[in-house]
Nucleic acid binder design. Sequence first.
DNA 1: CGGACAGTTGAATGAATTCAACAATCGTGG
DNA 2: CCACGATTGTTGAATTCATTCAACTGTCCG
Lengths: 273, 273
Amino acid sequence: MTHPFVRDQNRRPVACGDCGLYRLCVTLGLGGDDAVLLDSVVRRKRIYKRSEFLFHAGEPAEHVYAIRSGSVKTYLTTRTGRVQVTGLHLAGELLGLAGLDSRAYSCEAQALETTSACQLSLKQLEQAALLAPAVHRQMLRIMASQIRHYEQLLLLLGKHNAEQRLAAFLLALSQRLALRNFSATQLSLSMSRGEIGNYLGIAEETVCRLFARFQEQGLVEVRRRHVRLDDLARLRVIAQEQAAPAPAAGGGPGSSRPPVPDAEPSAPSALSH
Amino acid sequence: MTHPFVRDQNRRPVACGDCGLYRLCVTLGLGGDDAVLLDSVVRRKRIYKRSEFLFHAGEPAEHVYAIRSGSVKTYLTTRTGRVQVTGLHLAGELLGLAGLDSRAYSCEAQALETTSACQLSLKQLEQAALLAPAVHRQMLRIMASQIRHYEQLLLLLGKHNAEQRLAAFLLALSQRLALRNFSATQLSLSMSRGEIGNYLGIAEETVCRLFARFQEQGLVEVRRRHVRLDDLARLRVIAQEQAAPAPAAGGGPGSSRPPVPDAEPSAPSALSH
DNA sequence: CGGACAGTTGAATGAATTCAACAATCGTGG
DNA sequence: CCACGATTGTTGAATTCATTCAACTGTCCG
C-alpha cells in the first residue's frame, strides 16, 4: 500500500505547479493565470507522522490544510474527555474551514498515517478571494459541501442501525478512493476498529462483529486493516434499506428486493465529500 | 405568546430599514451605506403558515431565507421515508446556505408556526459580495458557524444519553431565546414531542418520560408545549456530565462535583447558532 | 523474545425502543 | 358555543439491539 502522491519527503518548498495535487488546488478556484497567486498563498508543505496533529481545537486558526497524501481524522472532545470522531479526510481534501468565523479551529486534526499536507494562509486566502472572485465562490462551495456532508452524517447516525452505518461507511470510502484513482474494492482502513466505531456511533466490538458477519455473508473479505469489498450491490441494499433476504436457498413467495416503492440506486451519499 | 416582530401581515414590500430584523441583516455584512444594496438583494417578504414549506430538498436553490419571526424546522428524508430533523431555526437566522454549491437545497424547510421570512436572491447576494467584501466575509462566517453547529450536534448525538440531550436542547433553546430578548426561562416549544425526539435521536415516548422526570426533580415545569426552566444550573450539570448527585441529604465524603479536572462553566454549546 | 496494542469473541446487562392503550387538548363545523 | 374527531401527549410492559465487561488471541515492533 504505497501512496503514489508521496514523491519526496524532504521539506523543501515545491512550486504548486509541481504539486501532485495541483488539479485539486485548481479546484480551489485558481486557474492557470492565478497559479502565481496560489503559490503566494501556500505557506509550506509538511509531512506528518501517524498520530501527529495538524492543529488543535481552540488554537488560533491561521491556515487551512490541503491534504496531499495520507489521511487525517478530525474529532471533538467533551469536557468529560469523551471523544467523537467527526471526519475522516483523504488526500485532496481541505481541512480547517470552520476556523473561518471565530478564527479558532473547532476540532482536533490528527494524522492517521504518514500524511503530507500544505498549509494555506487564511489571511492571504481571503486576500486572494478579493482579487479572484472564483476563489471566493470556491470557498463557499467547499463549505457548503461540508455542511451537506454533516447533514448526511446526521441522517446516518440518527436513523440507521449499526449494520447500515458500517455498510454505508465502507461504500462511501470505496467511492471516495475510486474518485482518487485507487481501487474501489480493495481498501486499507486507516482507522482502527475503535475509531471507526466512534465515528459511526457504535462500539468497537460491534464493528468487529459486523465485519465478521459481513464476511460470513460473503459481502467482504476482512483481514485486519485490509478490506476487500466483494458485493457492492448487496452492501448498498444493506446501507439503504433493511437487511436483504439471503438470495439463495428457498426464497419464499413474493419476498424479493426492497419492500419500498423505490428508485435510483444512486451513490452512497453519506460520509462522502 | 405573541411574536413582537410580527407587526403587519400584509405582503406589501417593506424597505429593509423598516424591517424589525434590520440589525440581523446588518450582521449580514451590509453596513449603513450598503443598505440600498441590501434592499436590492431582498426579493420579498412572506408569511408562511404552520407546516408550509419554505423550500424542498432538491429544488433549485435561488434564495436564502432570513427568518423574521416564527420558527422553521429543516429535515432530511431517507429513501425509505424516515425523517431526520437537522435543525430548528428561530427568528434572525439564515436558511438555505448549503444550496450555495450545488444550486439545490439540501433539505426540507418547513414552518413550525406562523412564520415571516425574507427571500434574499442568491445571485444578487453573490454580486453584492463582489462589491462589498464584508458581505463575502459574513457569508463565510455564517457557513462556518453552521459547520460548528453540526459538529457540536454530532457530539451531542454521538456521545450523550437521552437525558443529556434533552437538557442540552432546552438550555440551548433558552440561550438562543435570551439572545433574542425573549425570556430565558419561559419558553414555548414550537416542535412537538415527536419532532424534538426525532431531532435528538430519541423516541417521542422517551421525550415524554424525560420531561416527566425533569419535572419530578423540580428542574422544569412542563405543561404541554409550555416549559418553564426552574433550575438552569442543575440542567447544565445534567447536560454536561453524568446526572448530578441530589444536592441535599447526606453527601458522602469526597463525592462532590465532576470527577474530571474541569474548568469553565461556559455556554451550552451544542444546538445553538 | 516479550510487551503492548489491536482485534476478536462470549455472556450478561441495560437504556431506550416498540407496542399498546389511554388521556388531554385543539380546532373546526354544525 | 358545544361536540366530535383528530391530533398530541402520556404511561405501562415487553422487547431488543447494542453496550459493557471480560477473557483471550494475534500481530507488530523495539
